[in-house]
């Protein structure tokens, strides 16, 4: 009994140390990435390509998710708001929820699956095929060449995609309200206006910016530490998605506690 307890405590300690070591390795990679900012010639020409792959290519899936989220929000709000609750609050709920919560978080989670897994798999494959080692051999900074363009692209494009997704979610909620819920456009707009404050948009941008940094940096990190061939690449992609999703939710709570 005492031996099993000791094993459990030991396992917990090892897990904590592994977690701390992983965070440390991520910190070292971020340090190299920041240091790579000076090598503009290396990463300058690659940013737009990454923006295209991470941002523009992700717009359809983000809009798709946001549109249906807006529809569901409007329907559930009208289903919940019965009796004394005025129907114009459907607009308030759709607008507020899409801007400050569901827009950034769902977009972040969706892009964590799409972008984070893609980055981890791509860099993991480069790692297991020793392409990254070749870059280092040729005196190319792999952080500046591979990580920095992706992180910058994610930091810029995540807010943009999130704003578009939130807007489309509101439009979808409005269309749902006037077509399916017998609401008028002025009623929906009144609800939108009633509780809207410009800081909501700023809050959404801050959150999605942090989500972009998180998803891209963790995708790069897990791709860089890939070991063991194709199976390792799969594990790296999975780890990147899981870790990104968890950190997104942690950041979501953190920003809500700090900024609201």
């Amino acid at each position: 009994m005492a031996g099993k307890t000791l094993d459990f405590v030991g396992a917990t300690g090892r897990a904590a140390l592994r977690f701390a070591a992983t965070v440390g390795e991520w910190g070292v990679l971020m340090q190299d990435t920041i240091r790579g900012l000076r090598a503009v010639r290396i990463w300058g020409g690659l940013v737009f390509e990454q923006m295209m792959r991470i941002g523009v290519a992700s717009v359809p899936i983000a809009l798709f998710i946001a549109a249906f989220t807006g529809i569901v929000l409007a329907l559930q709000a009208s289903y919940t708001f019965t009796g004394a609750v005025p129907v114009y609050l459907v607009g308030s709920l759709v607008g507020k929820t899409m801007i400050i919560e569901l827009g950034p978080v769902l977009t972040g989670l969706a892009l964590a699956g799409r972008v984070g897994a893609s980055i981890a798999a791509e860099l993991g494959t480069m790692r297991v095929t020793e392409q990254i080692d070749a870059l280092e051999t040729m005196a190319y900074d792999p952080a500046a060449y591979l990580v920095l363009p992706r992180v910058l692209a994610g930091a810029v494009m995540f807010p943009a995609v999130t704003l578009l997704a939130s807007s489309l979610g509101i439009v979808a909620g409005w269309l749902t309200a006037i077509q399916l819920l017998e609401m008028s456009t002025p009623e929906f707009v009144r609800g939108l206006e009633t509780f809207f404050v410009p800081f909501d948009v700023v809050f959404s941008v801050i959150k999605s910016f942090s989500f972009g940094l998180t998803v891209t940096s963790l995708g790069c990190f897990f791709g860089f530490r890939t070991r063991g061939g194709a199976a390792g690449v799969g594990r790296a992609a999975t780890s990147a998605v899981v870790a990104s999703s968890m950190v997104i939710l942690v950041f979501d709570a953190f920003w809500a506690a700090v900024l609201l």
Binding site: E49, V59, L163, S167
Partner: peptide, 17 residues
């Protein structure tokens, strides 16, 4: 073409916001 699309997405999101 990539630059144009990226610019469109960013500008569109800023204008919408």
């Amino acid at each position: 073409r990539n630059e144009v699309w990226v610019g469109v997405v960013i500008l569109l999101s800023v204008v919408v916001a």
